[in-house]
Design a protein around this nucleic acid. Sequence first.
DNA 1: GCGACAG
DNA 2: ATCTTGTCGC
Length: 234
Amino acid sequence: MKVRTPRTVLEAEAIQDELRSLLDLTDPGPRDPGRVAGVDVAYEGDRLAAAVAVLDGTTLEVVEEVTVGGQVTFDYVPGLLAFREIPALLEALDRLTVTPELIVCDGYGLAHPRRFGLACHLGVLTGLPTIGVGKTTFVGTYPDPAPERGSWTDLTLDGDVVGRVLRTQRGVKPVFVSVGHRVDLDTACHNVLNLTPRYRLPETTRVSDRLSRRALIENCRSVLIGSDQRKKTG
DNA sequence: GCGACAG
DNA sequence: ATCTTGTCGC
């Protein structure tokens, strides 16, 4: 799947406004999906490595992993993260041999200045259910959730509830959950809790994060050694 | 007007 | 995201 990269911030924002009309916010989404994918991108200068890890939704064991190397094509701009990560992520997702029932993104979905964060963008382009799980604040205000695992509060932006601040482990910093495409907020949080039996972040996120970093190093090693191998890892 | 700002 | 040492805790 090929994607055009915008050349300006204005052009990027126009694309978001356009794609936002394709969002499906009515589908409740998969309650306990059998296959859940985690996606992440690691960077080093202008090089990048995208990774997709598909886990069994019940055992959380890794079912399939895919990585692709590439070059940065869009500088990071708050609110436009998707344009930086999506080209490589789509390529990685294309190489999967199994189709995940849910994709967990690193970042935000509806909780976004124009209501179209990375999770929404990836969902619309793939047609698959997606959710966003952010590690730090981006937009919105919220009260702190109680210290118990599973407690949460509304993430509000411009008077709208755009996500939830969810405590995935007792006494540990909460994560920021927002829907992407074809999943409702209750289902999104339910799944995030299923994916965090032990750590703060979803297993999907942890696995894809390690995978992308490893791919970046491996690719670098082949260059330093001077091998004439592929520039894209799969 | 100035700063903040997912990854 | 990435740059970075030691350190507290299981």
